[in-house]
């Protein structure tokens, strides 16, 4: 577990360093346009949430031997 904490801290440090020191230059939308397709994100979230819940439910049932 200590190894995992150290690795995670190291990764966090590297990513933070890169984000601060090596910012990316790429096209970005105007602030007003950012959430133009928010319903798509909502649908994506709901679809994945439903499927995740279904898999979790089936897995718990299988673990209890309810099949």
């Amino acid at each position: 577990m200590i190894g995992l904490v150290i690795l995670t801290a190291l990764v966090a440090a590297v990513v933070t360093y890169l984000q601060v020191s090596v910012p990316l230059a790429g096209p970005s939308l105007a602030h007003a346009d950012l959430s133009y397709y928010w319903p798509v994100a909502l649908i994506a979230g709901l679809v994945v949430l439903i499927l995740t819940a279904a898999v979790a439910w089936l897995s718990v049932r299988a673990g209890r031997g309810v099949d």
Partner: peptide
């Protein structure tokens, strides 16, 4: 035009400090 940043990417719908 910038939608490639996604939901949590910097300048995405919800956004975060990370590109």
């Amino acid at each position: 035009a910038g939608g490639w940043t996604g939901i949590l990417g910097k300048s995405g719908i919800l956004g975060s400090p990370l590109d």
